[in-house]
Write a protein that binds this DNA or RNA. Structure first.
Lengths: 203, 203, 203, 203
DNA sequence: AATGAATGAGATTTCATTCAT
DNA sequence: TATGAATGAAATCTCATTCAT
């Protein structure tokens, strides 16, 4: 059912180590030499698997995009309420980042990919994916009176995603010094309070 | 009263074009050659003003840090309530970014500066500056019952700053396609609603 | 009767596409990768048919040399006068180049093959072949008083071959923009006039 | 009076050694490494003087083109008859090639420059220069009855230039084994005979 | 204060070729 | 007969930086 990338095993290896290199030392250290060294093969060998370095970066983004789309499809299929779906998305993001901290470093760093039009386009479409998903869930929540409707859905969505991004960024810049999943759960509890319909808070 | 940088005119020029280069083409295009070309001088001339490229990056951060500190000092001196102070900070940020979009591209891109410990430390201290400022204002707001106190102040601060960051990021990735000041004002109105003490919403 | 090359079908394919690649993009684009891509096979597959790239270049030259030798043998067997034989050689060259323009690009480009002694030797022997053939025909023509003998046969031969080469070169550099066979015929008419015995020399 | 190239001393050095490298080992040995080694400087140093390797090749052609134009201008200013002018051009070419054999290897090797459109265009314009010059001289010679007019001037010009090119090519492929100036003079004597007006044509 | 010339290190990429399958 | 994976060598070019002037 899931969309599947056509990446070969070696291509996946390259994508993985590339993400790790970027996360650890920054995009400027993502060199063919460093990739090949990490994999224990020669530099030209990389070019058997990707035509150019740009293609590696595009593959990182494409891989993430497909994963995210699958995650969204999965969540939508769970038969949960809109607010519960946001919760699932929140928590699954946190879990993924804890398991693969390097991904967090790369995926919220749109700037990394700004130096090429094709990369920038892909980054934008990834951002749009999560944005549209959350926005439509909020809208649905407002229609079912599970989310306060005195604030435009786009802004609620922006606030939620902004908080998600910033907590992940802080976690990463702190060198994963705090428990992201725990803090993330607390953050979600607060967000839930914030977005609940106003009168219900009285109860 | 303000802290003042000791940067010479030429140093300021270099800082400015460096920010512009990063904003336009990414950190990888920030080369001595590109800086000197933008300024119409030779490459060695740059070294009259900065000892190394790292020093230029540090200067960018230091310059921003001092500006931000001055801005905070200024806001605190206005004699406003804590919520009003957050509002002023919000709006002055937006105005600054509209006047200097390149700055927005650089200043929320912590990843750019991750490949060196000195840079990373500076980035963290800048983040801490705004975080501490907002957090203390929220805390004060809670004590004066102008801000709801059923949500920890750190989380409210995180949500506010996260929203601020994300709207600026979107504005930048959209190539400044929407009116950041207008959308920012609307966002702030929504945030104000969210953080107001719960019962007061009934009125 | 003809000498026959022992080249297999695949080897001939390789020779052909190699000539085309050189003609179209220059010797620097003649790479194993480009050859194999043109043939739709893998790079190592080339090495089933030729031991090395040098061997491919040698094969191109050898193939042409044998063709030329066969052509010379054929012309000599026609039982024509010496001037008629030159004419036949002229015209058959033009026809061959029109049918296979790539060949023209390669065969008058001795420089292409200068970077290896074995190649250079082969090139020289090919040049000698046509030179000797024409020279001996001119000499024979002079002995039978069909060609003026007030000019050394080597020089007449050089002038004839030089004209042949240059018109082909111009045709090729013009991207075959003119009708080589027609212009070639006109050129031959003029050359015939030039080399006919002249009475005026008696004066 | 002469057109002058704006090449710096270093640029001229680079052009010179490049021609020598091509002449000696072929275009494929013209590498930045070989150029820099010949000059005793580092590879990056080359890029102070030319933006790219292509620019070096273009400079070689431009340099030759200007020299040739100056040579043509000079010859035309001598106040000689058209046939004498061709003679001067012939001999000065031979002298130049004897003094700088490498130039001969490069300048009649149009194929070397075929892999780039800008190079190919420049090559064509150089060929046109000499072609037009000779053709107009022949035409003038025919009008003044110093050159036979029973053969179209374009063809006489082609025959003359073809002979010039081929003798130079042979001299080069023989590793300058014969005396080009002496053989060239003999060739010219023969050509002069060939192109003189013929009484026999009257018949 | 500025520059022209230079360089060691290293970037991406291509080359001909090999080898296990 | 063919290929996927790999490689050492080398190509072009860029980088931050230095130094004499």
């Amino acid at each position: 059912m899931n969309k599947v990338t056509n990446f070969t095993k070696r291509q996946k290896d390259i994508i993985d180590v590339s993400i790790k290199i970027i996360a650890k030392n920054g995009i400027q250290h993502l060199t063919i030499k460093n990739i090949s060294k990490s994999l224990g093969i020669s530099e030209p060998a990389i070019y058997r698997h990707f035509e150019s370095k740009l293609d590696i970066l595009l593959a990182i983004l494409l891989d993430f995009k497909i994963k995210m789309q699958n995650s969204i499809d999965h969540i939508q299929a769970l038969g949960k309420t809109s607010v519960e779906q946001i919760e699932v998305m929140f928590f699954s993001h946190f879990r993924e980042f804890v398991n693969n901290p390097a991904l967090a470093a790369v995926i919220f760093s749109e700037e990394i990919f700004q130096n090429d039009k094709r990369l920038a386009r892909q980054v934008k479409s990834i951002m749009k994916l999560s944005q549209d998903f959350i926005t439509s869930l909020i809208q649905e929540g407002q229609q079912t009176h599970m989310v306060r409707d005195d604030i435009p859905h786009e802004q609620l969505s922006l606030i939620i995603l902004g908080a998600l991004r910033l907590i992940v960024t802080r976690w990463r810049l702190s060198d994963t010094a705090f428990d992201l999943e725990k803090e993330g759960h607390n953050l979600w509890k607060s967000i839930k309070k914030l977005i609940y319909p106003v009168n219900s808070n009285i109860l």
